[in-house]
């Protein structure tokens, strides 16, 4: 049977990992390539890089990181952040990324998702949706790291990107992100019930129980987490063993 995936996410700024893992064995805690290797060796089901570099001039930096990582990690690699053009996607895939995640550009123009999935295949197009609760059972899509309100209903948008060829949805709750209080399970349920493509849960993980909730209660196919792994609170192995002990099937 298909296993639920655990995906550590590395935030990369100007070529360096922000909030890096504090493992003593690391030579350089800020090196994204080395950190990705640690994750892949410890059983991560996929690796995600989120490029939070503000400027566009630094695209070469993330591409170079992807190139080096792809030569050492043989699990799927997703790269997001600043993916706006077909050329951006081509560059990342040629460097060795397996999937790209599109956020603002998909909200601005959903045809971009269609064009990208037609050109590269749905299997490598992930649409990242940042959602914020606006009223009871209603979430709205935000862009620019949660700063810009779009007026677009998150569930409607999720359906729309599916119709336009997205292979997966990376769903982040802007209310929960950084709080360590758990995923927004209601949001997850709403999106997983209204779409037929896999949904990756993101935003709010503080404990291993939260991962369980995202999968079992929220219906997510995969769970993404950053800080619980970065600070060494939990290892990927701990997360998998915990989920397995609660009868959630994972790749051990």
């Amino acid at each position: 049977m298909l296993k639920n995936r655990i995906i550590p996410c590395l935030d990369v700024k100007n070529g360096r990992v922000v909030k890096g893992i504090n493992f003593v064995e690391l030579k350089d805690a800020g090196d994204p390539v080395e950190q990705a290797k640690v994750y892949s060796d410890s059983g991560a089901d996929e690796i995600c890089f989120l490029d939070i570099t503000a400027s566009n001039e630094n695209r070469e930096t993330i591409i170079d990181i992807v190139r080096k990582t792809a030569k050492e990690c043989f699990v799927p690699l997703t790269v997001g952040g600043g993916v706006r053009t077909i050329q951006n996607i081509t560059d990342l895939l040629l460097a060795g990324a397996d999937k790209v995640s599109i956020n603002t550009a998909a909200v601005k123009n959903v045809d971009f998702v269609k064009e990208a999935s037609k050109k590269f295949g749905s299997q490598c197009i992930v649409v990242a949706i940042d959602a914020k609760k606006v009223s009871e059972n209603k979430w709205e899509v935000f862009t620019h790291g949660g700063r810009n309100k779009t007026g677009i209903d998150a569930a409607e948008f999720a359906k729309k990107v599916e119709e336009n060829g997205a292979g997966e949805i990376l769903l982040t709750s802007m209310d929960k992100d950084g709080t360590k209080s758990g995923y927004d399970v209601d949001l997850l349920q709403t999106i997983t019930n209204s779409t037929n493509i896999p949904v990756i849960a993101s935003g709010g993980v503080g404990t291993l129980d939260h991962l369980y909730d995202g999968i079992v209660k929220g219906g997510a196919s995969a769970v993404l987490a950053a800080s619980i792994f970065h600070y060494g609170e939990y290892k990927i192995k701990d997360a998998k063993e915990y989920l397995n002990s609660k009868n959630v099937s994972v790749r051990l």
Partner: peptide
Amino acid sequence: KLPHIGWNEIEIQKESRIFKEIKNKSHMY
């Protein structure tokens, strides 16, 4: 959900030279 994305177990149906030393129920992506 489709696509079928992720790690799933393979069930070996016959001896295959590319599965040498690979256990039944191994996970593949």
